[in-house]
Simulated scan of single mutants.
Amino acid sequence: MYVAVKGGERAIDNAHAWLAEERRGDPEVAELDVAQIREQLALAVNRVMTEGSLYDPDLAALAIKQSRGDLIEAIFLIRAYRTTLPRIGHSRPVETGVMACDRRVSATFKDVPGGQVLGATFDYTHRLLDFKLMAEGEVPEAAKADPRQEPTPHVTSFLNKEGLIQSEAQGEVSGEQTPPDLTREPLELPANRALRLQALTRGDEGFILSMAYSTQRGYGNSHAFVGELRIGRVAVEMDIPELGFAIEIGEVELTECETVNKFAGSKVEPPQFTRGYGLTFGQTERKAISMALVDRSLRSKELGVEVSNSPAHDEEFVLYHCDNIQATGFLEHIKLPHYVDFQSEMELVRKMRAEIAAGQAQDSAQEAAQ
């Protein structure tokens, strides 16, 4: 046993060395540095920060490099690192209404204060491979506008003026002032909306996208409009007890999405629109829109809407299966040694086969005797 253990240690050390060699790749090719990943693979960096629950583009880029581009492994690295950081305080809720928007579009109103700002988007590209990128030539510089600095009101505020959209204060299942922290406390059901939104933000983008898509295909009975999608930077403020007031400690880039869904009303509420909400780090549009669709689907029960057996309506199914780190751990653990378990299963199967064979032999003997 001792020899086997020592041999296993050597094999693991060699596997780590081989991994480092494979990560580096051909030494004749220039090595990627963290700054290149941060600047040129920004959408991957943004996803790692969002699902890793840590806003730090440099560390996210480092995690992507270390993981050889495996974003789930990078998210795991970021979450693991996050647990080592001290918690020195809490920031105030960010004010997205004063966001300096680089991109802001609405699918519900053509003309909105602040205008439609397309920003940098794949929405209108032809999805053809650009072989000029292989030539490593200079990219033509675009004519850029400065981000809108003055407050940009949310599109849903126009519906609020007529009372056509449900107030965010209504329909909540909890009146807690301070929401629970999913990064420090395990998920418990039933979850209030604040906790659900945390889980969806940290959830795997592909899973949340699939759940959102299912609602659009009829497994959620809810047709949504993108009331507004905005991307930009907001200030982060923190209350300093010694000073007696809040100070700005930095800024973060966020993607915010509000969807608008028709609501037929109930015995106590008139017909109106309801909202779905998504908020993520960086430019992560697909995730934010998907999150908003699933958020609205999970609100169905508290809104008094008929709930079907659709997966996106099932809070336990969605929240317990959306986390890619938990899913990866449970899935990949089966490739680790299970020698003892398998031996016991094999002995059980052998015993069952022997009993069946013995029974068949006995039946054959009885038939021959008759």
Score class of each variant (00 low, 15 high):
112 V>W: 03
113 P>V: 04
113 P>D: 01
114 G>D: 01
116 Q>C: 07
118 L>F: 00
118 L>H: 03
118 L>Y: 00
120 A>H: 07
121 T>Y: 01
122 F>D: 15
122 F>G: 01
123 D>A: 10
125 T>R: 14
125 T>V: 14
126 H>N: 15
126 H>G: 06
127 R>Q: 14
127 R>L: 15
129 L>W: 07
129 L>I: 14
129 L>H: 10
130 D>A: 13
131 F>A: 11
131 F>N: 10
131 F>M: 13
131 F>R: 07
132 K>V: 05
132 K>G: 15
133 L>Y: 02
133 L>S: 13
133 L>W: 05
134 M>W: 08
135 A>Q: 12
135 A>R: 14
136 E>F: 12
138 E>C: 02
139 V>C: 05
140 P>G: 10
140 P>L: 15
142 A>E: 09
142 A>M: 12
143 A>L: 11
144 K>M: 13
144 K>F: 09
144 K>L: 15
146 D>T: 12
147 P>L: 02
149 Q>W: 11
149 Q>K: 15
149 Q>L: 14
150 E>M: 11
150 E>K: 10
150 E>D: 14
150 E>Y: 09
151 P>D: 04
151 P>V: 06
151 P>C: 05
152 T>W: 07
153 P>S: 05
153 P>W: 02
154 H>C: 06
154 H>M: 12
155 V>I: 13
155 V>E: 03
155 V>R: 03
157 S>R: 10
160 N>M: 11
160 N>P: 01
160 N>D: 09
162 E>P: 04
162 E>W: 06
163 G>Y: 05
165 I>G: 00
167 S>E: 09
167 S>L: 10
168 E>G: 06
168 E>A: 09
168 E>Y: 00
168 E>K: 06
169 A>H: 10
170 Q>Y: 07
171 G>W: 02
172 E>D: 04
172 E>K: 12
173 V>T: 15
173 V>W: 08
173 V>N: 06
174 S>G: 04
175 G>W: 00
175 G>A: 10
175 G>V: 04
175 G>T: 07
176 E>C: 05
176 E>H: 10
176 E>M: 11
177 Q>M: 08
177 Q>E: 11
178 T>R: 11
178 T>G: 01
180 P>Y: 05
181 D>I: 03
